[in-house]
Design a protein around this nucleic acid. Structure first.
Lengths: 207, 207
DNA sequence: CTTGAAAACGAACATACGTTAGTTTTCAGA
DNA sequence: TCTGAAAACTAACGTATGTTCGTTTTCAAG
C-alpha cells in the first residue's frame, strides 16, 4: 500500500498545520515530536516531509502566517475606525482582544516560541512583532499629541498594555463566565482609564 | 580519577540549580538537556544524579522553591504595609515588580513551564499559584468594600493586572532606560488609575 | 587510623527523535 | 489510455537524550 485513495496534498498540508498548532500550543515546540504530529494527522512520520521542509520550517511558517494576518487585520480595523485617535485606540484594543479570543493558539505560539526559532527566522518574526508594537505606540503618541492621553513613556506603556491584553489568552475559554463583549469593555476601561489625561490620582508615586 | 579534591555537595547542588535556571530560562525545559547542564556546572552528566532525582524533579524543585519564597515575601510586604487596603494594594504592586526585576528567571520559568510538570507536580504548583492570585483578589475586594475601588469582576481584573505586571520580566533588563523605581511608579499609576472609584470615563463601553 | 558515606568518574543502555531513501500507488493532464 | 508528478508507505540511519551502573577517590566521624 502506498498513496492512499482520496489523498489530497492541500488538505493534508492544512491538517498538518492544524494539528501542529494544537500540539505546540499544548506542549511547546521542543516537546512536540513529529511522530505524534503524524499520528494525529493520520499519516506516517516520513510522509510529513511531502508537506513541510523541516520541523523548524513548520514552526516558522505557522508564526509567519499568523503575524502577517494579525498585521493585515489590525490595519483593516484601524482603517475602519477613521482618523480620530481615541476611536482608533479603542478599535485597536477591541480588535486585539477579539483576534486573541479567536486565535488563541497562534497568538500563544507566536509569543512563547520566539526562542525556538533559529537566528534568521527569529529576526524575521521579530521584525513583524516590532511592526505590531509600533502600531500601538503610534496610537498612544497620537492620543498624547491630541491632548487626550497622558503618556510617560510610550514604548513601555505599549508593552504594559500589550502584556495585559495578550494575557487574556492564557486563561480565556469560550463559554466562560464573561462574554467576549464584556471582556472587551472591561479591558478597554482598564486601559483607557489608566492613561487618559486628567485621570491621574495620587497614585503616581509609591511613597 | 573519581571524586574531585575540594568537591562539596551543597555547593554543587546550588551550582546545578543556578545553571538550570539559566538554561531553562533561555531555552525552555524541554529544550534543555542534562549534558549541557552538567557541562556548565563542570561535572559529568551522570554526576548530576548525586544531587537531583530526575530532570522533572529538578524543574519541580526550582518552581516550588520560587513559589514558596514569592508567597512568603509577599506576605511580609503586605504585613509591613499595615491594614489600609490601598496601601496594601500599592505594596503588592511594588513588591511584585521588584521581586520580578530581581528574579526574572524564576518568574519566567514558573509562568511558562507549568505545562512541563507531570500531573502531580502540576497540581501542587497550581495550588501555590492560586494562592498568590488569591492575595491580589482579596486586596481588590477589600478596596472595593472600602469604597475606594470600582471592580467589575475581581478575578478577571486580577488576571489582567498580573498579566501586565508580570509582562515586565519579558523585556526588563537591568540598566535599561527606566529605573526600577520609575517602572514601579508607572505601573502603579496605570493599575490604580484603571480601577479607582470615580475614575470611569466614557471608556466603559466600546460602542 | 580506620571506615563508611559522599561525590565524582567513565562507560554504556535503551529509547526517542528528526530526517532520508527507496518504493508503491493514485491522480490528473495530454 | 498513457505517463509523470504527487503523496503515501516501509524501513532505517545517525544522533541526542535521560538515566543507570560499577568504580574510584575524597571527606569526615569515631
Amino acid at each position: 500500500m502506498a498513496r492512499i485513495t482520496g489523498s489530497n496534498g492541500a488538505r493534508t498540508a492544512a491538517a498538518i498545520r492544524d494539528a501542529a498548532r494544537g500540539l505546540i500550543y499544548r506542549h511547546g515546540y521542543a516537546a512536540m515530536n513529529l511522530r505524534d504530529l503524524a499520528a494525529e494527522v493520520g499519516i506516517r512520520p516520513g510522509s510529513l516531509y511531502n508537506h513541510i521542509t523541516t520541523k523548524q520550517g513548520l514552526l516558522f511558517d505557522l508564526m509567519s502566517e499568523h503575524m502577517t494576518s494579525l498585521l493585515a487585520e489590525t490595519d483593516a480595523a484601524l482603517a475602519a475606525a477613521g482618523p480620530e485617535p481615541m476611536a482608533r485606540l479603542r478599535a485597536f484594543i477591541a480588535h486585539h482582544l477579539l483576534y486573541h479570543f479567536e486565535r488563541r493558539q497562534e497568538v500563544y505560539i507566536a509569543n512563547s516560541e520566539l526562542r525556538a526559532l533559529d537566528p534568521p527566522n527569529h529576526a524575521r518574526i521579530l521584525t513583524m512583532r516590532r511592526d505590531y508594537e509600533g502600531r500601538l505606540i503610534a496610537l498612544l503618541e497620537a492620543g498624547a499629541a491630541a491632548g487626550e492621553l497622558e503618556i510617560t513613556d510610550s514604548r513601555i506603556t505599549a508593552y504594559a498594555i500589550l502584556a495585559m491584553l495578550t494575557g487574556v489568552c492564557t486563561w480565556y475559554r469560550p463559554g466562560g463566565r464573561c462574554s467576549k463583549e464584556e471582556l472587551v469593555a472591561l479591558h478597554t476601561a482598564l486601559v483607557l482609564d489608566g492613561i487618559r489625561r486628567g485621570n491621574r490620582g495620587e497614585a503616581g508615586g509609591d511613597r
